[in-house]
Nucleic acid binder design. Sequence first.
DNA 1: CTGTTAGCGCATTCAA
DNA 2: TTGAATGCGCTAACAG
Lengths: 344, 344
Amino acid sequence: MARKSRRELAQQGGTTELPLTVREVALAAGVSPITVSRALHRPALVSEATREHVLAVVKELGYVPNLLAGSLASSKSRLVAILLPTIANSIYASVVQAIMERLTEAGYQALIGPTGYSPEKEEELLEAILGRRPDGIVLTGTLHTPASRERLAALGIPVVEAWDLGTEALDMQVGFSHEQVGEALAEYFVARGYRRFGVISVDDPRALRRNLALRARLVELGISELPMEVLPLPATWEVGRIGLSRLLEHPTPPELVLCSSDTLALGVVAEASSRGLRIPEQLAVVGFGDTSNGRFATPALSTVSVNADEMGRAVAQSLLDRLAGNRQAVRLDTGFALVERQSS
Amino acid sequence: MARKSRRELAQQGGTTELPLTVREVALAAGVSPITVSRALHRPALVSEATREHVLAVVKELGYVPNLLAGSLASSKSRLVAILLPTIANSIYASVVQAIMERLTEAGYQALIGPTGYSPEKEEELLEAILGRRPDGIVLTGTLHTPASRERLAALGIPVVEAWDLGTEALDMQVGFSHEQVGEALAEYFVARGYRRFGVISVDDPRALRRNLALRARLVELGISELPMEVLPLPATWEVGRIGLSRLLEHPTPPELVLCSSDTLALGVVAEASSRGLRIPEQLAVVGFGDTSNGRFATPALSTVSVNADEMGRAVAQSLLDRLAGNRQAVRLDTGFALVERQSS
DNA sequence: CTGTTAGCGCATTCAA
DNA sequence: TTGAATGCGCTAACAG
């Protein structure tokens, strides 16, 4: 005798209401299951009359299609995985926000995984997340374990590396060159007459690359000394305060402080003002990130603006294009901008 | 004659490498599919020898189990949906970060949806996300559409409402009373001799409730005037600057400014310092949020600290407990703390 | 335009 | 401790 299905068992128990299935909706609407499916997902294939009728029944019954089953059957999950160091950092969060907005519009959903800046953790998360068969993946930066690279290559699913433009792209890249940022900062402020620089940075791979490029360019410009405070993550406001305190203990304290994020810069401003240092006359401060798109700069602060919205949109768009069958390679430089403090 | 399966078709095409299935792993390992499944997910049910062998084969072949299929078969998705206004706001982002860390440890993954502070958008997203059959849902606040409430009630899946303690919980609630925050602020600062208050707030439902409670308590304490600048979202640093500018145009400018978030407070500090206002002597500033857990307060600032880590952990834990079969109701007050500026 | 058939990849249930 | 049979809910492929 045939074993009882779980559905039969549950109904016998008579306790929990199981979610409806296409079959039940089809029955109620007097059509076949596939017609319900089509009315929902490919309306063009169904006559207007039946479509309306079916949709009415769907609404009345409160049917919510099971996307697990749908994805399995169609091998399309409408899921995009986003792996990033941490969401608790506005610089990443604002890009993710922009990505999600675009994806949501396009009917995709975002599966988010926090890697904590560790390629190993990224690999682990990747393994777990690939099991969901996402249609696309967004990674942060270009630093991945060999295993991660292999797996992604083998799977052939669309991948966007955001935030950085490395040499060997896994697939698509959207970001900018952090080396260029460092160099541009050096040139810009040396040209403006600054000579005594200081850096306050957290231990983020991209920030470190900006710092190195900055130092190298400064040396070329004849400035060999660059006090640098590299502090552990996360990049809180307090880290900026501590960083400044340390820099000021230096024999020749800086006249310009470059911070690896705007959050740090704000901490620096706070610390400076509590020490009675006038900004920017006695101490100029430069941030990085500018999630408010060019409006971060004030009489007190300059910043490097990276336009999170644009990057996020570009990331989402590259992915969506690819998912729509567009096979072209993408390597998009979203650039950055030095936004100088406004004249006060 | 039997139609060809999609797998056969794909292999005939000979182009794309299809992901492996349990069957192929089982074949390679010389066991049955179910043994592979068990070796992976319920190791206790398999002898050590076969387990090791199977796992070796899995690793060698690079097999990644299809969780869509697994979830469908077991009706457990190991997915938790988190709906929040926006991730681009550190106050929400840091809680989500904490939630995700706990969930990831426990083998769950987070599906994130941005509602943009709109219950209607929340409802829409909810519909879309419920299709993935998440094992649990985290919502922000207690403001949901009737349709959302019904649907969640009917489904009977674990729901945590975070950030707020309303009267009618959908299921579990973890947060604190925003009314209490407003009242506590009023009492605290009146007791410290402040009389001329000002508020700078964004248009967030919870911030507005804090403001109203503040105003009510101030009136009770004999202070009837409360200039309030309510500005549109998002809560950027610039909004704080604008808010202060406007407050200062008031006939009796405040000696104490209460901000609806720390970000605003920092903008206020910046604007104040660029106007030459000494903080806190001429203007005291109070933030809200304190994602750096009590370390936000400085000589210049006081803040209301809500301990994002604790709230996030509590949210995740409530959910995980419930998923583990613990049926008790949860209504957890994670509290808040006024952190006074340090004496300078 | 609509329906039938079959299978997506896995885990539950029962049997050995 | 292992395996065989079956179905989770849906959609692709094909036929009418």
